[in-house]
Design a protein around this nucleic acid. Structure first.
Length: 443
RNA sequence: GCCGAUUUAGCUUAGCUGGUGGAGCGUGGGACUGUUAAUCCCAAGGUCGAGGGUUCGAACCCCUCAAUCGGCGCCA
């Protein structure tokens, strides 16, 4: 039953002249009443399979003729290296078996016209048929690139002796603003879906010192942009005894490692979605400059952008700021008033916090947010009270400081955003199998 | 929450100043022994998003609603 031969290997020339059994799905068929060309696909590629009536016999030939797009097949035959075949190889079919037929009354709905109309992006129709769209070349490429991104995150942290650690997804309190919480009924009480593992990571920081996770985070933002999902994958890290600058070095190291890994593992996929590999090499090979918030404001004001000191940088400002950047840039030292209580106030200037955002070029915007945490008990209590946040749901968090608090910090990276940026996607939805936004929870 | 737009066959679309809605793909039938999104012939498939209005007559004009898309704010 196990599959022995893969189309990708056949196209690579591994089985020239040999008899193989190919298992896969029909991508397209063409031909005459006496010869049929079946383009078969599996997870590794596509290959043209040539079936002749005189070889197969009438019965097998007729059943193959009835194999519609996305029917599953087992084809046996000899591999023939032939310039006429797309990819350079084809299978001369000696026997054919239809495993899962597709009925004529319900043909595979995703057609060339639907794909062409989407033009690399997505249409409502493709989103409604997401479960079937996953089988198409573009989506398969995206999923493979995504897999490499996830693998690169794990390898970056594990190579540095970080411990993978899991926080709960049901929580009682907010990390970000409370209005973006998903409320869920919880046995007569209210719970929320987590927006970040951060507070729970800080609780484990004294135990593990270097820890990371890749987990979903949930934010009930009604954002209708190409950068937002309500359920997104969040790679987060927390380190004890680390400064803002050191945490930034990890952020830079991680993102460059992801870019390098994707380049090494997914060149073929990136090429087939028309991504410029030189851009990704640039992101992998060059250091990421660090700019203070104040400098960014001055730059923007110099460009006659209307912005005042103390304002957070919204996307339109980010875009103006990053349009000339060739690599991601860090923005550091935001005003205290623009950030929540857990950001550590700069001991050198109480108006700022020790934080950073990493802004990706090409208009993709913020991909990392992080910094040092407020770590002394006295300071965390003062900042919680100052912002009018209730202490009670954060008692476990305060305890982290009460019992041997130490300087520490971390960051969160939007994995889907990184996938979207590195693959050059038009929309973040393109890089996640079943995207969730404010208007869609199906399929 | 705010702003803008779209909705015609399974999919993608054409449809001018209101006068019986066309096509390509897909599907079905037929032809063809090397096709490359094969080609050629034929066929089925539409209460034109829903409801109301104006009109002799509405896909087209007006109103209401719905769904969807794009952008902003917020963030990863």
């Amino acid at each position: 039953m196990a599959k022995e031969f893969w189309i990708g290997d056949v196209q690579a020339g591994a089985h020239d002249g040999a008899e193989v059994e190919l298992k896969g799905w029909v991508k397209r068929t063409r031909g005459s009443n006496k010869i049929r060309f079946v383009v078969l696909r599996d997870s590794t590629g596509t290959i043209q399979c040539v079936a002749k009536r005189e070889t197969l016999g009438d019965e097998a030939f007729e059943s193959l003729k009835g194999a519609l797009i996305e029917a599953s097949l087992i084809l046996k035959g000899v591999v023939n290296a032939d310039e006429r075949a797309p990819g350079g190889h084809e299978l001369i079919v000696s026997s054919a078996e239809v495993i899962g037929a597709v009925r004529a009354e319900t043909p595979f709905p995703i057609t060339e016209s639907a794909m062409q109309a989407a033009d690399g992006g997505e249409t409502e129709f493709l989103l409604d048929n997401r479960h079937l769209y996953l089988r198409t070349g573009r989506m398969t490429n995206m999923l493979k690139i995504r897999s490499s991104v996830f693998g690169a995150i794990h390898s970056y942290f594990r190579d540095l002796d970080f411990t993978e650690y899991q926080a709960p997804n049901f929580v009682a309190g907010a990390v970000e603003g409370g209005s973006t919480l998903f409320e869920v009924p919880y046995f007569g009480r209210k719970a929320y879906l987590t927006q970040s593992w951060q507070l729970y990571a800080e609780a484990a920081m004294p135990a593990l010192e270097r820890l990371y996770t890749i987990a979903p985070s949930f934010r009930a933002e009604k954002s209708r942009t190409r950068r937002h999902l309500t359920e997104f994958w969040h790679a987060e890290m927390e380190v004890a005894w680390a400064s803002n600058a050191e945490i930034m070095s990890h952020g830079e190291g991680l993102v460059r490692h992801i870019a390098r890994t994707v380049l090494e593992e997914r060149e073929e996929e990136l090429n087939s979605i028309d991504r410029d590999l030189d851009l990704i090499a640039r992101y992998a090979d060059n250091p990421y400059p660090r700019i203070r918030y104040d400098e960014a404001i001055e730059t923007l004001q110099g460009m006659n952008v209307e912005i005042e000191w103390g304002q957070d940088l919204d996307y339109s400002k980010e875009k103006i700021l990053t349009q000339d950047y060739e690599v991601p840039h860090f923005l550091t030292h935001y005003p205290k008033i623009a950030k929540p209580f857990y950001h550590r106030v700069d001991p050198d200037d109480g108006n700022y916090v020790l934080c950073h955002d990493l802004l990706a070029p090409e208009g993709y915007g913020e991909i990392v947010g992080g910094g040092e945490r407020t770590w002394s008990e006295e300071e965390i209590l003062a900042r919680i009270d100052e912002e009018g946040v209730p202490r009670e749901p954060y008692q476990f968090y305060i305890d982290t400081r009460t019992y041997g608090g130490v300087p520490h910090g971390g960051f969160g990276l939007g994995v889907d955003r990184v996938c979207s940026w590195l693959s050059g996607a038009d929309h973040i939805r393109e890089v996640i199998p079943f995207p969730r936004d404010s208007r869609r929870v199906t399929p």
